[in-house]
Design a binder for these strands. Structure first.
Length: 269
DNA sequence: AGCGGATGTACAG
DNA sequence: TGTACCTCCGCTT
């Protein structure tokens, strides 16, 4: 399930299996059939990500724009591809590999200008080398909105989702309800720098781990543990459980239609 | 078998 | 602020 690290990893995996070669393109589920027919047997030229958006480049034919939303899933496999089930929106296949896309919010063939418009409405992405956090700071430092909501706003910063939001605020001891304008520039720089590191590790490992070495169960003398979403975290989905650092109770609350998790004792600033 | 959620976003009002 | 949409999985009956 997708935050920015997942999508950047998907771009890498598409490049590794499909780049610079002809690819068979189908839409067993049917909703992408017309575009699939246009792209079938063409060469995949690039695959890139910005935030949670994935772009597969087919040269003059345009780009396949994919957004997984909350439910979208991607499954890679080695040839021969099994018969697709009827929920597969898009299948790419070559003699070695296949990849199936199910349940995306978006899977559409778009033009260069349409792609540019998407980049233009996204904020800087900690996983894009050329992106820098200054534009985001300009907006955050003027905003009365909570820092928890700002971190989830893709126009301000692209790629952060509910897990990274909760975890990075914990790691910096920041109360999620603080207004953006009350954040210091140093705090913002620290958050951005940390996101760059955490999300790069997320791409490498294809999962989210945020617990510092000194707070791992081993270091704290507790039994080993992996959270049920696949990584080690401080607060995400740990409502009413003891904080790994202070032992206090992790709290949860709804914020902007999502579940927020934080440790009131550790996150006071 | 049927439900409630889930790492997300867009749109209505 | 609420609701609709996309799919799968794990829990309850």
């Amino acid at each position: 399930m997708p935050e920015g690290h997942t999508i950047h990893r998907l771009a890498e995996d598409h490049r590794e299996r499909f780049l610079d070669r002809q690819v068979r393109v189908t839409s067993p589920q049917g909703k992408f059939s017309d575009s699939a027919a246009l792209l079938d047997r063409q060469v995949l030229q690039t695959a890139e990500a910005h935030g949670k958006h994935l772009f597969l480049g087919f040269g003059p034919l345009g780009w396949v724009h994919i957004h997984l939303g909350l439910f979208g899933k991607v499954n890679f496999g080695d040839a021969p591809a099994p018969p697709p089930t009827d929920t597969v929106r898009l299948r790419l296949a070559n003699p070695q590999s296949y990849v199936d896309l199910r349940g995306p919010t978006t899977c559409a063939l778009i033009t260069d200008p349409e792609k540019r418009a998407i980049h233009d409405r996204l904020g800087p992405d900690p996983l894009r080398l050329a992106d820098d956090p200054d534009g985001a700071w300009a907006r955050i430092s003027r905003s009365r909105t909570t820092v928890a909501a700002l971190l989830m706003d893709q126009k301000i910063i692209a790629g952060v989702g509910n897990v990274y939001r909760a975890e990075v605020l914990f790691r910096h001891g920041i109360d999620p309800y603080r207004a953006g304008k009350d954040l210091t520039h140093d705090e913002w720089t620290a958050i951005w720098t940390d996101l760059v590191e955490l999300m790069r590790e997320g791409v490498r490992n294809n999962r989210i781990d945020t617990v510092r070495p000194e707070h791992t169960p081993e270091a704290m003398g507790r039994p080993p543990r992996v959270d049920d979403h696949g990584g080690e975290v401080y607060v995400y989905r740990r409502a009413n459980l003891p904080c790994h650092v202070c032992g206090g109770e992790i709290r949860t609350a709804g914020l902007a239609a999502r579940n927020l998790f934080w440790c009131p004792a550790c996150q006071h600033r």
